[in-house]
Design a protein around this nucleic acid. Structure first.
Length: 427
RNA sequence: GGAGGGAUGGCUGAGCGGCUGAAAGCGGCGGUUUGCUAAACCGUUAUACGGUGUAAAGCCGUAUCGGGGGUUCGAAUCCCCCUCCCUCCGCCA
């Protein structure tokens, strides 16, 4: 959500920033609505003040047993006029809220302008691409040949975009998640969390899934299934005020993520690249506004470390304005090399949202009260990143570590997590 | 699922329909006292919005006692609905 005060002060910057997202200028519409809204508030408050005065006077008059008819009449008149103004105020406010909550976040200045992913900027390319003496196969061929990956029966059970992993592949998925969590908690100071997978409307609104992107998520009769644990963890600060000294707060969790993939019909239908349900290790940082820029780099580095440890080649893309998510001010995508597909595919997305989400969920911190300085409350900055998408990491391991006979070497860092297993091969 | 009880400021906890943005205590901050610390004493201490002013502060006002509606000239206080928490019973782990 946008700060109306900021828009009042810098309408041109606001329009320019959203213009980079391809939106028409909005400031003048917003500001004229804002002016009407405030005028109504002022008028309403004057009447409320009079109403309160009348009520107080009434108490005095009645206790003295005097006649209060005139006061009651005035009170009645005020009441009906107030009702009209209150209705008007509500209408303006709702209209304004609707606009402010459906506009995407302003991109930061260093985000390149662009229409789609072809305009993203490659920041760095890391790791050597593996060389094969044979044609590398795609992950689903490898998994099915091993007899440990079953899409057909998953379709019987649930439908398309689901998979069953068995044996060493199921274990590999768990090993990856565990390795990631251990790395983030032990090396990067994230606190592991176990979080609700079903959340309410407010939480979905807070992180920006609602109201605009309802169709991307699954809904039960009463709750939403999280599309990412970013939703649960960012909302750790919803409706809260923490001390400045508590920041930054860093959390990580491995959860299933549920996505309807409504807009992706027919896309990536083969294999487990795009599923309705997948595990993801998520990183969430809640920081002081001054720290969020550095925190984004730090977070990307934590995610990259996983790829480096797994010796998976990847590149880092700075997303252009046209490819960035609704809530983001700046996003790095990590793309891992998939030899079976012969291209880089997204495996992590690290974003800073500034105070966009904090404002929606009212997550704040308090500055300390010292000497003459009064304490103030301020919105925190929120960041989130995948560290990493477990399913896609599994794909990357299969494709990069495949051997000519269809067996899979286990990356060194995972061997202990696999109970000493060094290779997966058909039994 | 059934029956009760509850939700008040950072925390604990009062609150008769008007004099309650809200007693009291604790905590926090500032000060006095003190060789230092402690204690004691004095003062101060919610959030959001609007207006004014602006470098900031300040000042004036409005709203907020879990959320939403209602009754009333006037609601923390009365009524209705919802959410959450607690206790007991049942049910399932």
């Amino acid at each position: 959500m946008h700060d109306i005060k900021w828009i009042r002060e810098y309408p041109d910057q606001f329009d320019a920033a959203l213009g980079k997202r391809g939106l028409d200028p909005q400031a003048s519409i917003i500001l004229s609505l804002d002016e009407k809204h405030r005028a109504t508030i002022t008028e309403m408050q004057d009447l409320q003040q009079r109403r309160n005065d009348v009520a107080k006077e009434m108490g005095r008059v009645k206790s003295q047993g005097q006649d209060a008819t005139a006061l009651i009449e005035e009170g009645t008149a005020l009441k009906s006029r107030l009702a009209v103004l209150e209705e008007q105020e509500r209408t303006f406010k709702e209209h304004l809220q609707t606009i402010l909550t459906t506009l995407p976040n302003c991109p930061k200045d260093d985000v390149p302008f662009g229409k789609n992913e072809t305009d993203n900027k490659t920041m760095r390319v890391v790791g050597d691409l593996p060389k094969f003496s044979f044609d590398p196969r795609q992950h689903f061929d490898l998994g099915e040949a091993l007899g440990l990956m079953d899409f057909d029966q998953a379709a019987v059970i649930s439908g398309s975009r689901f998979v069953i992993l068995k044996g060493a592949l199921a274990k590999l998925e768990r090993a990856l998640a565990q390795f990631m969590l251990d790395t983030h908690t032990e090396r990067f100071g994230y606190t592991e969390a176990s979080v609700p997978l079903l959340v309410n409307d407010n939480s979905m609104f807070g992180t920006g899934q609602l109201p605009k992107f309802a169709e991307d998520s699954f809904k039960t009769q009463s709750h939403w299934l999280i599309a990412t644990s970013e939703i649960s963890m960012t909302n750790f600060l919803a409706q809260k005020i923490v001390e400045e000294s508590d920041l930054p707060l860093r959390y990580t969790a491995c959860t299933p993520c549920f996505r309807s993939e409504a807009g992706s019909a027919g896309k990536d239908t083969r294999g487990m690249l795009r599923q309705h349900q997948f595990y993801k290790v998520e990183l969430v940082s809640l920081t002081h506004p001054d720290q969020s820029d550095a925190e984004l780099e730090r977070m990307a580095n934590a995610a990259e470390t996983i790829l480096q440890e797994l010796k998976l080649p990847y590149r880092v893309q700075l997303l252009c304005t046209g490819d960035m998510g609704f809530q983001s001010r700046k996003t790095y995508d990590l793309e891992v090399w998939l030899p079976g597909q012969n291209l880089y595919r997204e495996i992590s997305s690290c974003s800073t949202c500034g105070d966009f989400q904090a404002r929606r969920m009212n997550g704040r911190f308090r500055t300390p009260e010292t000497g003459g300085q009064k304490s103030k409350t301020q919105f925190v900055h929120t960041l989130n990143g995948s560290g990493l998408a477990v399913g896609r990491t599994l794909i990357a391991v299969l494709e990069n570590y495949q051997q000519e006979d269809g067996s899979i070497r286990i990356p060194d860092v995972l061997v202990s997590y696999m109970g000493g297993l060094k290779e997966i091969r058909k039994s």
